[in-house]
């Protein structure tokens, strides 16, 4: 996983609650056996007027000019501003892969769905929870004059080009992994002895488990 680095970037506002992962990346694109190739189909049902299929290029598609991410002013955005319960529904990690490949490094929302939130940290996308009032102010700014912010995970701050810095909370474990780009599996395998020891006891007590056969 790549390490998360501080940056300054444009904020794109997606003004609706309960955005589910079916919207972030529709199912027809989940047939891929790769982790890449999803960026062009991020929010496919909203970004384009026609129905998308795997293997198309963006210039074959009918662009929905009403959709916020298609507005010229939000091109190149690196921060997605969202509403409550962002990423609900399906566990598909493809949603995170699509957001990152499109160019987002951070998602700001009042709340996230659990599985999506967890998936973000496995890939280096930073989901930041902010209170409703702050989110509302950011929507106002992003939808009017536009909003550019500097995001620094180390100091846990978001600094708008104009206005006051906003602090955010984050689990210290997740913060460290993200900053260092640590491989979760490698970390757990370092505890191999502990797992092996646990298994001896566990399968001794519960020999009926399917894993007991090895």
């Amino acid at each position: 996983m790549r390490a998360f680095q501080a940056f300054t970037g444009l904020v794109a506002p997606l003004d609706r609650a309960n955005v589910d992962t079916d919207q972030i990346i529709p199912k027809q694109f989940l047939k891929s056996i790769k982790r890449t190739g999803f960026g062009d189909n991020l929010f496919d049902g909203w970004r384009y007027l026609d129905e998308g299929h795997p293997g198309q290029t963006a210039n074959e598609r009918q662009i929905n000019h009403e959709f916020v991410l298609n507005a010229p002013r939000y091109q190149g955005a690196r921060v997605l501003l969202a509403r409550d319960n962002f990423g609900c529904g399906s566990s598909r990690e493809h949603a995170v892969w699509a957001l990152m490949e499109y160019g987002f490094d951070v998602v700001l929302a009042p709340s996230f769905a659990d599985i999506f939130y967890s998936n973000c940290f496995k890939n280096g996308l930073l989901p930041i929870v902010l209170d409703e009032e702050t989110i509302e102010k950011m929507f106002d700014a992003a939808q009017s004059d536009g909003l550019v912010v500097s995001v620094d995970l180390e100091s846990q701050t978001i600094v708008p080009q104009e206005g006051e810095a906003v602090a955010f909370d984050i689990d210290p474990v997740r913060k460290r992994k993200l900053l260092l780009g640590l491989d979760d599996i490698g970390l757990t395998l370092a505890e191999r002895d502990r797992i092996v020891e646990f298994e001896k006891k566990h399968y001794g007590q519960m020999p009926w488990l399917p894993g007991a056969r090895g």
Binding site: S91, E93, I115, N119, K122, N123, I185, T188
Partner: peptide, 21 residues
């Protein structure tokens, strides 16, 4: 339900790293 990175994590370690809900 888990994402694909966690699927790989369980394949490789038989464990999930998480906090209790």
């Amino acid at each position: 339900g888990i994402g694909t990175s966690e699927v790989e994590h369980v394949m490789a370690t038989q464990c999930l790293a998480q906090r209790k809900a």
